[in-house]
Simulated assay, not measured.
Amino acid sequence: MDVRIEQGDITQCRVDAIVNAANSSLMGGGGVDGAIHRAGGPQILAVCRELRASRFPDGLPTGQAVATPAGELPARWVIHTVGPVYGRGDGSLLDSCYRSSLEVADEIGARTLAFPLISAGVYGWPKQDAIERALRTLGSTPTEATEATLVLFDRATYDLALEVQQSVD
């Protein structure tokens, strides 16, 4: 699979699936999660409510993933995954977010994906470690996906990711 790094707005990505760094409630929130819910419109929230009422009454567990339609986003699907809060979970849970998202992508037939840097915002995961884990996990997980793009919102994180990518390759 081709793993790329881009700077930009993940809600504008024209891919099969956009991965959402969700909170366990699946009801939207701040950061990437809020942006995806706002841009995707009410259809995403409606399906998330159904998921909470049926499959995930206690919320989506950390490290797992689930798909919903993308609503008004320029993608077909949103894959929601809950990253660990730094200091409350180990790195294997963060790795699991990427692996689980790829597993869900394979289940729904998504071949091109856009990922945010999971847990590196309000969840406080150190950005360098988050980037290393994202690139390593995306690059080593068997999948039918053909392309995964790590979409970074700000220039400083994008520049750091380019540096990290050279050391991971």
Rank of each mutant, 00 (worst) to 15 (best):
R76G: 14
R76N: 09
R133K: 09
V15L: 05
G83Y: 05
S24M: 10
D2H: 12
H80F: 11
A22H: 11
G28K: 09
I36Y: 04
Q12D: 08
T81F: 11
M1W: 00
I18R: 00
G8Q: 07
P61Y: 11
A53W: 02
A70Q: 05
C48Q: 09
L93I: 00
V104T: 11
G139P: 10
V104W: 07
V19L: 09
Y123G: 01
G40F: 12
R38F: 12
T62I: 15
L26S: 13
L45N: 07
V168R: 12
R111F: 05
T68L: 12
E103N: 12
L113T: 01
G89Y: 03
V122Q: 03
V104G: 10
R111D: 01
G109Y: 10
Y98I: 03
A67L: 06
G41I: 08
Q64K: 14
E6F: 13
D58C: 11
Q166S: 12
T146N: 05
S101Q: 10
E107H: 11
T112E: 06
A134T: 01
R99M: 10
A46D: 15
H37R: 12
A110Q: 10
D2W: 02
D2P: 00
G121M: 09
V15I: 06
L73E: 03
L93M: 14
D159G: 03
S92N: 13
Q165M: 10
M27W: 10
C97R: 02
R133I: 00
V168W: 09
I131E: 14
V78M: 01
L94G: 09
L51I: 14
T112N: 00
V32I: 13
A22I: 06
G59F: 09
G109K: 04
A39E: 05
S101I: 06
H37G: 09
I79M: 04
A156P: 01
A39F: 11
S119K: 03
A22S: 15
Y98K: 03
R55G: 01
D159M: 10
G91Q: 13
Q165T: 02
A70P: 14
D169Q: 14
D169V: 01
R133P: 07
P74C: 11
A22L: 14
D154E: 14
T62S: 06
A156I: 02
Q7L: 06
L117P: 05
H80M: 12
A35C: 10
C13I: 02
A120Q: 08
I36V: 13
A17Y: 03
M27D: 03
